[in-house]
Every structure is written in C-alpha cells, then in structure tokens.
Design a protein around this nucleic acid. Sequence first.
DNA 1: TCAAAAGTGTTAAACGTACACCCATGA
DNA 2: TCATGGGTGTACGTTTAACACTTTTGA
Lengths: 221, 221
Amino acid sequence: MPLPRPQIQLSVDCILLFLDGHTLRTLLIRRPIPPHLGTWALPGGFVRPDESLEAAAARVLAVETGVRDVYLEQLYTFGDPGRDPRGRVVTAAYIALVRPPAPEPREGAWTPMDALPDLAFDHLTILDYARQRLKYKLEYSPVGFRLLPEEFTLKRVQDAYEAILGRALDKRNFRKKLLSLKVLKPLAKFVREGPHRPARLYRFEEEKWERLKEKGNVFVF
Amino acid sequence: MPLPRPQIQLSVDCILLFLDGHTLRTLLIRRPIPPHLGTWALPGGFVRPDESLEAAAARVLAVETGVRDVYLEQLYTFGDPGRDPRGRVVTAAYIALVRPPAPEPREGAWTPMDALPDLAFDHLTILDYARQRLKYKLEYSPVGFRLLPEEFTLKRVQDAYEAILGRALDKRNFRKKLLSLKVLKPLAKFVREGPHRPARLYRFEEEKWERLKEKGNVFVF
DNA sequence: TCAAAAGTGTTAAACGTACACCCATGA
DNA sequence: TCATGGGTGTACGTTTAACACTTTTGA
C-alpha cells in the first residue's frame, strides 16, 4: 500500500540557551524571508527527507548561527493548523544548551529571556515552554552543568540555578547540598578574578551522576 | 516565497494506558495493512492537513478503538529516517489515560506493559519512553488520578502508584502523606466489596491541586 | 467465629532552612 | 588598609521511614 501524498511541512526550531551571569539568553535571528520578514524569530528550517530531527536541528544551528557541538534535546512539537500563514507547518522544537564563552553568532543576537521582543509565528509560546521545561528538568537532571564551562566555580553553579529558578538560594546550603552529592571533582586550580580570595574550580563528573540517578536520588533546591 | 513540496509524512501514535489492579495495560491492535501486516502495534494514523496533532490523536483513538473523551498528552516525536520501511514517516506519540471501567475496544487487546509482544516499527521504544515519562510525571502532576474512576478508595490510589513506580509503598505513610496534601475530598460513601470492612470513597479536587502547585509543592513517594 | 482488607499513631533518623563571620586577594 | 567576594558550621524544625494492632464486614 503506497503512502498518501504528504501535505504537511515539517520544520525544526532551535532554542539556543546561554547563561550570561544571572541572565539567561536565547539566540534570535531576524527572519530573512517572508512571512514575518525582518521579525525576530527562533533559528529554524525545514527537515530534509534523509536526516533525523536532531540532525536537522544541528544543521540549522550550524548554518544559521555558526554554533556547533552543543547539547540538543527535543522540547515539544507544535502543530496547530494556522501557526504558519503559508500553510500547514508542524515544527519540532529543540533546546540547545551552550557553554560559555558565548559563541559570537554569525547572525542574530543573544537576547535576555526576560526581555523578549515581538516574535514571529508562535515562537513566544515555544520560548515560554522551554523556560518551564528547563526549570523542571533542573531538579532531576544535570542540565545546569550543560550551561557551564567544563571547569567552573561553585558560584557559577549557583548563578545558573538562580537564573533558571528565578530566585535566590542560600550560599552555604547550596554548597553543602551540591558537594554532598559527590558529583563534582574539586580541582587544584583556582581563578583569581578580582580583589578577593580566588575561587576553586570544579568539574562535573557525569558517571557519578548516573550512579546517583540509579539510586533514585534527586537534586532539589 | 512558496513552500517547498512536502516530502515527509506525519503520523500520530497513541499509547492508551489503563490500570487493571496492579497491572498497567496498553491497547495494541493488529496492523490491518502492510507493512508489518498482522503485527501488534500502537493505534495510529496520518495527520490530516486541517487538524491539530491532538485532534488527530483523538480521531485515531475514536476510529480505531472506539475510545473517546480521554486525557491526552504529547509524549515525544520520533523521526529517525528508516523507522518506517515505506519512506519517511515522522510520528508524534501521544499518551492517553483512561479511567476504569475499561472500555471494551472495538479492536485490539489490553496488553500488560510488562509482557509486550513483538511490535511493529519502533513501537517498543515508544512504549518504554511512555512508561518512563509516566513515572517521572507522577511526582509533580496528578496523572495518577487520571487513571482512576472519579470516586475511588485510597487503596486504589496506592495500587496506581505502586503499579507505575514498580515498588511497594507503606500503607500508613502513603495515606498520611496523600491526605496531608488536602487534595482529596472524603465522601460519605463506602464500598462494600468483600468479607471485610467497607472502604471510604474519595474524590480528587483539581483546583486544590493547582493551588498546591503554585506554592511549589510536590508529591513524592 | 474466622478470614480478609480498612483504618490508625509513634518514634528515630534524615533532611531542609535560617543565619554570620573569617579569609585571601588586588588596588 | 580597605573593599570584595570566597569559604565555612550549627541548631532548629520539618519530613520521611519503619513498624503492628484494632475495626468492620460477609460467609
């Protein structure tokens, strides 16, 4: 039995997230073609017949923004008829987490998540959904560390958590709990970055996290 | 600028879940057409150009199984090239939770989740993913109650949690915690169903749950 | 009167939360 | 020597986890 003729377009859109101090930023580009020509939008494009959804997301990112080798995770698929004025376009949204230093985008701008401009299509809905998802996932997955450099100070981890959760955390309690999980390896390296005591660097140990997870342990702040 | 000609098919697949005592069951049907003719598979079908993904899932359920008015939630979109031998088919999987009494399916069989037969396409992967998701969601959302009748005994709630989590829970602690959340309304009704003391019926109060959630409270066993 | 599930409370351990000072450095 | 952020411990309240007997019913 042959397939019916396809009538629905499939695209991917990418929510690139980057943590700039206490500010969560996303990369928006100006639409180079109609509809919504010139309006801010998420980087996106149509899926090719021979590539997986994730491969499409990676390609779109590389081509439109120059960003490569990032952590990608499917967020949700938005498919309401009418979300694209050209016709029926269903889009699989992907979250991409990038580590500092922020790659200079070939195009577009790193925009603070709490000061978003008008956006094309339903991209505001998609970004709201992404922010929510990130917040929930923080509790039981190491997404926070995917927004940090390989080596980081405890302060930076706390900044990441505070930015994503949107509230302040107690320094001593945060450190106590984080270190008690034994998923960070303290390094014999320190950063001097101001007129104050240098901060120790740590590294996230993925396989220790995996072991924790098997035991059903969870990371709640 | 016109759209490129579509080359990818979009389908939906439904994971219908039903709780039969301590057994979580899903509705599987035998494929009525090639490929995988006669193999067990999830109910599914192609999305029409004018319907939303969720509407497509609801339609497929109604047509293929006769089940209506169920809770539907998007699970994940599976889109690897090669998952369908006919060509490129991307599928949005939806979880549907049904309350007892189990609707008698027009077609197919309620199959225990822990004794699945060989399945068509990547449907085993999809079911594994659904089981995982349900387990995670139990912690912070009232999915458990969507698998129960409107009025239920505490025993039934505990059975649901034990079935989904896959482990036994302490009766006294379970009840204490569940009742302390104040999301259940005790009714002046009891069920007599055996040579033992009758059990009180309760009703889940959605809007009390919403209030709890706003306060960031969570439901962990 | 027996078997079967409903219903109920206490205690100890673990965990979360609130809170303030000394340290190392660069200017 | 001062301003700045790094780093550390304790005490209290809340939550979890372990655990066994009495109640009500139908047969």
